[in-house]
Amino acid sequence: MSGHAPGTRHRPWPDVSASPRSPLARVDAWTLGEAAFDACLPGGGLDSAGLVELKPGDHGDWPATLTFALCLTVRRQMGSLEGEAAPGAPRTVPKKPVLWCTTPRFASEYGRLYGPGLAGLGLSPASLIMVDAPRESDALWALEEGLRSGGIMLAVGLLKEVDLTPSRRLGLAASTGRTPGLLLTPPSSPPAPSASLRLRLRRLPGASHPLDRSAPGAPRVRLTLERCRGAPPAAETLSLDLEWCDVTYRFRLVADVADRAHATPGARQRA
């Protein structure tokens, strides 16, 4: 540091708003990591102070939807980390935990979250606060508390249905606490009214393993943008095939060539 310029001597406080850790700096970006999708969203990413609703295409798509939600959680953690640590720095446990709110129904139907499997996706299971709410209303309450507190990075809720009032409350809590909420609802339930973004997921035949064509590789989903507040009309019909890369922890577009992976199983077996 050189000597003070005469004009700056009597400035009593450092300029807090210019500090890189101030809330004004864009540290909590929440993107999918795939420009083709992120560019369609207003602000270039998911709303980090609003509600996102995820819906499976049918009941068989639930595992894919849950996994997609977990990957979005990883993306959320990455976004928060990139502001603090340089890219490429060793991944540490994120400071803020993630609230994962479920009801016993889901665990018996699709299984419970499995720590080693989450670690495989890039998500540290130690950063989850798992709430197993006995009733739907308790789950809504826990989500609202979590969103409002501002002490968590993301609140994920597996819900049967979100009515107008709970949905408005959750949306309000999310904007109060500057915390995003991710709602996973069944395929045929009415959409949550206050979600700023609604995505529908359908599973696709997965990629082949790069080293072994008969082995399953990266999972693939077809993502349809059903609703996006503030997006250009062209985005309303957006539909993309994405796969999750567990090395770079981002989504990427499925290359067209890869679609032929299982088209000719007989030929593959002979090969």
Partner: peptide
């Protein structure tokens, strides 16, 4: 505390959802 160490990466793939 919530600051327990991250789990070791298992070389083989494990599912994120486990039926028990």
């Amino acid at each position: 505390t919530h600051a327990s160490p991250p789990p070791p990466r298992v070389s083989a793939r494990r599912p994120p959802l486990l039926l028990s």
